[in-house]
C-alpha cells in the first residue's frame, strides 16, 4: 500500500467496484427498460475490467509487455524472457469470451424490448404482479 503504484491500482479497483454498485442500482430501480439495458451493459463491462485488472502484473524494470511473442524465437530462453515480462493472457481470453457472450444477450434483449414496446406502447416496466424484482 505504501508505494504509489499499488495505491493507484487500489483506486482503480475501488472505482470499478463503485461502478458495479451504481450500475446494479440502475438495473434494479430504473423504470425504463432501455435504461436497464444500458445499466446492464455497464455492469458486465465492469466485471470484465475487473478481470483484466486481475491479470495485470508488475515487473522489476520498465513496463510489462503484452502477451505476444514479438518475433519467431530462436531458442527456449527467449520464451522464458517473454514470460518474465508479459501480462497474464488467460483473463484476457476469458474476458474476450465474456464480452461476446454479453453482446449476444444484449442483442436478444434489444429485440425483446422492441417487441415489448409494440405490445404495451411503453418501455417502462409494468408493476410486477407477484411482487418480483426486475
Amino acid at each position: 500500500m505504501s508505494d504509489p503504484v499499488s495505491l493507484l491500482l487500489t483506486v482503480l479497483v475501488l472505482s470499478l467496484v463503485t461502478n458495479i454498485g451504481i450500475s446494479l442500482y440502475g438495473v434494479f430501480t430504473r423504470p425504463s427498460l432501455v435504461k436497464k439495458f444500458i445499466s446492464l451493459t455497464i455492469f458486465s463491462d465492469t466485471l470484465n475490467s475487473f478481470a483484466i485488472a486481475l491479470g495485470f502484473r508488475r515487473v522489476a524494470r520498465g513496463y510489462p509487455s503484452i502477451a505476444v511473442i514479438p518475433s519467431i524465437p530462436e531458442d527456449v530462453s527467449e520464451l522464458r524472457a517473454a514470460a518474465g515480462t508479459a501480462v497474464d493472457p488467460l483473463p484476457q481470453a476469458l474476458v474476450l469470451t465474456a464480452i461476446v457472450i454479453g453482446l449476444a444477450v444484449y442483442m436478444f434483449l434489444a429485440g425483446l424490448i422492441v417487441m415489448y414496446y409494440r405490445h404495451y406502447g411503453t418501455t417502462h416496466v409494468r408493476p410486477a404482479e407477484g411482487g418480483s424484482i426486475g
Binding site: F108, L109, L112, R126, A128
Partner: peptide, 17 residues
C-alpha cells in the same frame, strides 16, 4: 402474446445479472 414477451424480459434481465 404480450405476457410471454414480458416474462422473457424479466427472466433475461435478472438471469443476466
Amino acid at each position: 402474446n404480450p405476457k410471454s414477451i414480458e416474462a422473457s424480459i424479466r427472466y433475461a434481465l435478472v438471469g443476466m445479472v
